[in-house]
Simulated scan of single mutants.
Amino acid sequence: MIYLGTLLFVIGCMALLDWRHRLFFFRRPVAATAVMVAGMIYFLGWDLWAIDLGIFLHRDSPLMTGIMLAPELPLEEAFFLFFLSYLTMVLFTGLVQLLTWRAGRHERTEAANGVSA
């Protein structure tokens, strides 16, 4: 239960960051949802394939809920994959926004100094 609570907490932190800077879900919710659904399907499929090959195995832990979505696939794994995908998209869109802002700032500085491109 502690692991799921931690995942929910960090997902909430990512959502606050996303909301504050309008990075992903709060910029383009329909596109963001499509990206997250596609990512979740891909990563859950990957996990199920690895479980079938015997690569991923679940071990009981007092930190987890014990709820299984499929054999060897705990509930927490879905939340972890969501967090991983969300974190990636917030970092990517944040970097794009930062670079766009810096490029615009650089152009304004050049214009103010009388430098033309």
Rank of each mutant, 00 (worst) to 15 (best):
I55W: 12
A32R: 00
F56L: 09
G54T: 02
R59D: 11
L44N: 12
P62Q: 00
A50N: 11
A32E: 08
T33K: 01
L44V: 10
A50E: 14
I41C: 15
L53D: 11
I51M: 15
M40V: 09
A32D: 08
L57T: 15
A31P: 03
P62H: 01
I41A: 10
I55Q: 14
G54D: 09
H58D: 13
G39Y: 06
S61W: 08
R59V: 15
L63F: 14
F56S: 02
V30N: 00
M36F: 06
A38T: 10
I55K: 01
L53T: 11
L48G: 01
D47G: 09
V30L: 03
L57M: 15
G39D: 04
F56N: 00
M36Q: 10
R59S: 15
A50G: 10
L57F: 09
R59P: 04
S61Y: 13
P29D: 06
S61M: 07
G39F: 11
S61N: 15
L44H: 06
L48F: 12
V30G: 05
I51S: 11
D47Q: 05
Y42N: 06
G39I: 01
Y42L: 15
A31F: 09
G39K: 01
F56V: 06
D60W: 02
A32G: 12
P29K: 02
L63Y: 12
F56W: 14
D52Q: 09
M36S: 01
G45C: 04
A32V: 09
Y42G: 12
I55F: 11
Y42M: 08
F56Y: 11
G45H: 10
D52A: 14
T33Q: 03
A32Y: 08
V30C: 02
A34F: 11
H58F: 13
D52W: 06
H58K: 15
G54K: 02
R59C: 12
A32P: 04
D47E: 13
R59N: 13
D47P: 15
L48T: 01
V35I: 14
P29A: 03
D52T: 00
V35S: 10
L44T: 11
D60Q: 14
I51L: 14
M36I: 14
A50M: 15
V37T: 13
L63E: 01
W46Y: 10
L53C: 04
V30Y: 05
G54N: 07
I41E: 02
W49S: 13
L44E: 03
G45S: 06
G39L: 03
W46E: 04
A31G: 05
L63D: 00
G39V: 05
I55N: 09
